[in-house]
């Protein structure tokens, strides 16, 4: 199976553990080169986070396990990229 290189996830998570802890835990997963978490909505107890992970061979199951272990739930997979090179989304006339 082709190696997964980029994952963009929409995650709902409690405020604690904080994204500072979560981003470091995700960065330590084997195959991950870098990760970014940005918050686009915040509530009293939970927050919606966009988690972007890039690497040379991402382990999807392990990444989801860490997110769930820290109380998060993956609402949607918003973007994925796999293969020998990273392909960006291409603009089409419909866009």
């Amino acid at each position: 199976m082709g190696n997964l290189r980029r994952l963009v996830l929409d995650v709902l998570k409690p405020l604690d553990p904080s994204i500072v802890d979560l981003v470091q835990l995700l960065a330590e997963v084997e195959g991950v080169d870098g990760t970014n978490i940005s918050i686009y909505e915040i509530d009293r107890r939970v927050e919606n986070a966009k988690i972007t992970i890039e690497g040379h061979d991402l382990r999807y199951d392990e990444i989801v396990r860490i997110i769930e272990e820290n109380g998060g739930s993956v609402h949607s997979i918003d973007e994925v990229a796999a293969g020998r090179m990273l392909i960006e989304d291409v603009a089409t006339p419909q866009d």
Binding site: L12, K13, P14, E68, E69, S73
Partner: peptide, 12 residues
């Protein structure tokens, strides 16, 4: 209830 997730076996 808010997160619609069972948190019993998580770190929380």
């Amino acid at each position: 209830k808010i997160s619609l997730t069972d948190l019993g076996e998580t770190k929380i």
